[in-house]
Simulated scan of single mutants.
Amino acid sequence: MTQSKWLSAPRSVLLAMTVALTGLLSGADTAGAAELAKNLFGAEALPSAVAPQSYGFYSKGCFAGGVGLPLDGPTWQVMRPSRNRNWGHPAMIALLEKLSRDAVQDGWRGLLVGDISQPRGGPMRTGHASHQLGLDADIWFSPMPDQPYSMSGREKIGAVSMLKPKSLVVDDRRWTESRARLLKRAASYPEVERIFVHPGIKKKLCDTVSGDRSWLNKIRPFWGHDEHFHVRIGCQPGSPNCKPQHDTGRGDGCGKELAWWFTEEPWRPAKNPDAPKARDIMTMAALPKQCQAVLTQPSPPSFEAALFKGGRAPVAVATAPAPEAVVPEPASPPAPVLAGTTGLPAFSAFAETPQIGVPVPRPRPGP
């Protein structure tokens, strides 16, 4: 299923019932509180058209006022578009576009962007535990090819591991200095707080990076992440209810904390492998109370209106009234806006790299 087909899906009947019951009942016994959050947030096709704000923590929260990374750009492609996970806080999407442009200097024709977040964040039906606040994004270690992938290709093409088979060691036949430069570039942005990579990749960097090693502090080892790296930015201005992570401290992270990953302990089998994952039991009652309201906020009038327009361009606002209204399906996947095109916003995503800031939303329309 392509992303455009997602947009024709009607609102969940269960969500409508939840909204109605929320006005009549209170407390943790409401229907909304009892419903699995992953089902409600997974049913959303578009973000909410309000000022951007993240609620809760990276693994237990949601966000409002998100925008979408266009599926195609001059220096990026979105992979697995049918998942409808190319949405994020405007600051996150701005950073991804900036990184894709700046990475050209590091030998990258373009980036293959994996999952960012669902349109309104929240827990996902499958996959990640985090990516709930619109502040996380996955980028493949494989570069964008000269001939862009087709929509079907993006669903089938697999990412390539940077490790030797069945090992914790980087395969030098696949690893290149351009990948190290890309990680350094991403870590150089002040918005970025952490970049998760496989412990073997972190060790490779620790063993080979010379000169300035301060940026290695942001490179954090974690399970998986051998085929892609995970960029995380901090809580953004205007989000007082976003819970930040603890500070990463000082140093390059190449000492005892990295050595632990090469002991037996991190890789022991789970004591209870059949235990349910958090997303499989997380109800709306477990999320910040604002997340219930996020589900009922109005959407932009169309998929195109919800896409990020670059730089400090205003965030799309809703003109369609009811949340349960069906969003019209576009005739084809949206094409990128090219420089010189009629209607180009004042700050273009494809112009020279701007100084990234937090986009200023338009005022929400009155009643």
Rank of each mutant, 00 (worst) to 15 (best):
T2V: 04
T2S: 14
Q3H: 14
K5D: 15
L7H: 14
V13M: 04
V13L: 05
L14G: 10
A16H: 08
L21D: 15
G23Q: 09
L25W: 06
N39V: 02
P47F: 14
Q53D: 06
K60L: 01
K60T: 00
G61T: 01
G68A: 08
G68T: 01
P70R: 07
D72H: 13
G73P: 05
P74S: 14
Q77R: 11
V78F: 10
P81Y: 01
S82H: 13
S82T: 06
N84W: 11
W87N: 02
A91Q: 07
L96Y: 12
G107R: 14
I116C: 03
Q118L: 03
R120I: 00
P123A: 01
S130K: 10
H131L: 01
H131A: 03
D136M: 09
F141L: 13
P148C: 12
M151K: 12
G158L: 13
K164I: 10
S167A: 04
V170W: 12
D172R: 12
A180T: 11
A180G: 13
R181Q: 12
L183E: 00
A186Q: 08
I195V: 04
P199I: 00
G200P: 06
V209I: 09
S210I: 02
R213W: 11
R213C: 06
W215T: 05
W215N: 07
K218D: 09
W223Y: 14
H230Q: 12
C242H: 04
H246G: 15
D252A: 15
G253S: 10
C254L: 06
K256E: 08
A259D: 15
T263R: 07
E265Y: 10
P266D: 12
W267N: 13
R268F: 06
P269E: 07
P273R: 07
A275N: 10
R279G: 02
M282Y: 08
T283R: 05
P288C: 00
Q290D: 05
C291W: 00
L295Y: 03
S299R: 13
P301K: 08
E304R: 11
R312C: 02
V315W: 05
V315N: 13
V315M: 06
A320N: 05
A322W: 12
V327K: 01
A331R: 14
A331W: 08
A335L: 12
P336W: 13
G340D: 06
G340V: 00
T341K: 10
T342L: 06
A349F: 05
A351Q: 12
Q355E: 15
P359V: 00
P361Y: 04
R362C: 11
P367L: 04
P367M: 03
